[in-house]
Computed example of a mutant assay.
Amino acid sequence: MRFEVAFGRLDEQALLTVESAEPLTAKQAIEASGILERFPEIDLSANKIGIFGKAAKLDALLAEGDRVEIYRPLIADPKEARKKRAAEGKTMRKGGGEKK
């Protein structure tokens, strides 16, 4: 069976392949990939993970071809950022254009 493990930061990204004769959990695939040694800042007790963009738990059993993604913590809380923009009187329009 083949799985992928992905992680990225601003200056470097990695997509590593893991092969196993049997199904693995997300945590087992992450550990087998060697990504924890390559990116020591990853803390599986703090970083969230997902499988193909959907939130997942470390004990999730992977299917053939699954990609486990390790997410970085958010720099800013999206709700707080929206509140700040609203307080400053800025508006957002669909498509990112300026309000006319």
Score class of each variant (00 low, 15 high):
N47W: 02
G89C: 08
F3N: 11
G8Y: 10
L16E: 12
K90P: 00
G53Y: 09
E37M: 00
P73D: 09
A86Q: 08
E98N: 10
Y71F: 12
T91R: 13
A81R: 15
T25F: 02
I49W: 03
V18Y: 03
G95V: 01
I70W: 04
R72S: 15
L58Y: 10
V18T: 05
E69I: 03
R82C: 10
D11C: 01
Q28G: 10
G50P: 13
R9V: 10
E12D: 04
A21L: 09
I51T: 06
A86C: 00
K100R: 14
S45D: 15
E22K: 12
A86G: 01
L62G: 05
A6D: 08
A76P: 00
E12Y: 07
G65F: 12
S45A: 15
S33R: 08
G96R: 06
G97F: 08
N47S: 07
E4G: 08
G34L: 11
G8H: 11
K100D: 15
A26R: 05
E98Q: 15
R85V: 02
A87P: 00
V5T: 08
E22W: 00
K79H: 09
A63L: 14
A46S: 03
L24D: 05
M1D: 08
E98R: 15
P78I: 12
P78T: 12
I30Y: 01
K54C: 01
A87W: 00
K79P: 04
T17H: 02
E80T: 05
G89D: 05
S33G: 07
A63C: 07
K94M: 02
K83V: 02
E22I: 06
F39E: 09
A56H: 05
R9N: 11
G53P: 12
S33K: 07
E31L: 09
D43S: 08
P23E: 11
M1K: 14
K48E: 13
G97S: 13
G34I: 09
R9E: 15
A6M: 14
D43E: 14
K99R: 15
R38V: 06
R72D: 02
E80R: 14
A26V: 07
E41M: 15
E80C: 00
E19D: 13
P40W: 06
T17M: 05
G8D: 05
P40N: 11
V5H: 04
A29P: 00
F7V: 06
F52T: 00
P73H: 11
I51F: 01
F39K: 01
F39N: 08
R72P: 06
K94E: 07
G89P: 06
A76Q: 15
Q28I: 03
S33L: 07
K48G: 02
E4N: 13
A29C: 04
A6Y: 13
